[in-house]
């Protein structure tokens, strides 16, 4: 197990910059996800850590060891690929044995470890099968076993669940997470699926366009996103624009065309600056008619989602916000409604 440090990592392919000045520190035994849309640089970052790409600039350290220029075989890592990359010409046992042989583990010890790791991934007795004889989920677990068997310092996973069906994906999330907790192995996980990242990670790194936008615990990322991109990528977000009229101790008061609201912020903002704040749909509540509430609007669309109704409400300045309400009172489209806003849950974006 080792701590992973990435310092000022940049990677360019030809003239195209894939990763720009990425800094990241992963503690021993920590599970960190790199989250972002495709092309955001998350996989390139992971491949640099694996040694499969050479950084253009920057350093990568495992513990105190600088591995930046080491080839992958000298890094003591375990990696799981999206396509699993199991060797089709080898049985499950041989696939796992390959990882042991390359680290010099042979004979009885190898046999014991193969049986042990197959037991861990719940594939006991599958040694003699060929990968093509296994289901997607089983192949996935063989890939995991193969990555773990040599007891690497670092586990790297590149979208390992993307090729599984929804139900299996759900199961495997919990399986990988509990396995990682049990083994206490430092893990870097790449995914574009925000709920996967939320469920599994100690911390999430959200990347866009080769840069880190935010690093934090799942609840930080969700409730206090740093940028509009982060807010939109992680769940649904309503964007409220306005002018700061007051700032005091982490709370800003913002004036919009339709009224005023307060929002949390981690930085001082000068009065008079134009800002955007975000609020999650579940922090807004609908009330019939225009009462003395500070926020009123007109319902422009209504969708039935089963457990909840999804409303789109147009505000006075043209902003359309999304509100979710328990199915029950059903204000119709076109109705004027007032919105109660849970002011603790409004967050100022950068």
């Amino acid at each position: 197990m080792a701590r992973l440090r990435i310092e000022r990592l940049s990677k360019a392919f030809g003239g195209v910059v894939a990763v720009q000045a990425v800094d990241l520190d992963v503690a021993e035994g920590e599970f960190v996800s790199l989250l972002g849309p495709s092309g955001c640089g998350k996989t390139t970052t992971l491949r640099c850590v694996a040694g499969l790409e050479e950084p253009t600039v920057g350093r990568i350290l495992f513990g105190e060891r600088d591995v930046t220029r080491l080839p992958p075989e000298q890094r003591l890592i375990g990696m799981v690929f999206q396509s699993y990359a199991l060797f089709p010409h080898m049985t499950v046992g041989d696939n796992i044995d390959f990882a042991l042989q390359m680290r010099g583990v042979r004979g009885d010890e190898a046999g014991r470890r193969i049986a042990g790791v197959l037991d861990t991934v719940q594939l006991k007795g599958m040694e003699a099968r060929y990968p093509r004889e296994l289901s997607g989920g089983q192949q996935q677990r063989v890939a995991l076993a193969r990555a773990l068997v040599a007891e690497p310092e670092l586990l790297l996973l590149d979208e390992p669940l993307a090729n599984l069906d929804a139900k299996l994906r759900e199961e495997m999330r919990f399986f990988i997470r509990s396995l990682q907790r049990r083994l206490q192995i430092t893990t870097l996980y790449v995914t574009h699926d925000q709920s996967e990242a939320m469920i599994m990670s100690d911390r999430i790194v959200v990347m866009f366009g080769g840069r880190i936008h935010q690093t934090g615990r799942p609840e930080d990322i969700y409730h206090r996103p740093a940028t509009a991109e982060v807010a939109n990528f992680i769940g649904q977000a309503n964007m409220l624009k306005g002018t700061v009229v007051e700032w005091r101790e982490g709370v800003a008061t913002v004036a919009a065309a339709w009224g005023r609201f307060r929002c949390g912020t981690s930085r001082p903002v000068p009065e008079g600056s134009l800002v955007t704040a975000m609020v999650r749909p579940e922090a807004l509540r609908l009330a019939n008619g225009a009462d003395r509430s500070e926020m009123t609007g007109r319902i422009v669309a209504r969708h039935f989602l089963g457990n909840v109704l999804d409303y789109r409400v147009g505000l006075a300045d043209g902003t359309v916000v999304c509100v979710q309400a328990m199915a029950g009172s059903f204000p119709p489209e076109g109705a004027t409604v007032s919105l109660k806003i849970d002011q603790d849950k409004v967050w100022l974006l950068r």
């Binding site: 694996a50 040694g51 499969l52 080839p71 992958p72 075989e73 000298q74 890094r75 003591l76 890592i77 375990g78 990696m79 690929f81 396509s83 990359a85 060797f87 390959f98 990882a99 390359m102 680290r103 193969r146 990555a147 040599a150 790297l156």
Partner: peptide, 17 residues
Amino acid sequence: DPRLSEAARTMGASSAR
């Protein structure tokens, strides 16, 4: 799949092996 070679490298195999 070129990933197969990459997987072998991450498991500790030199490019020759």
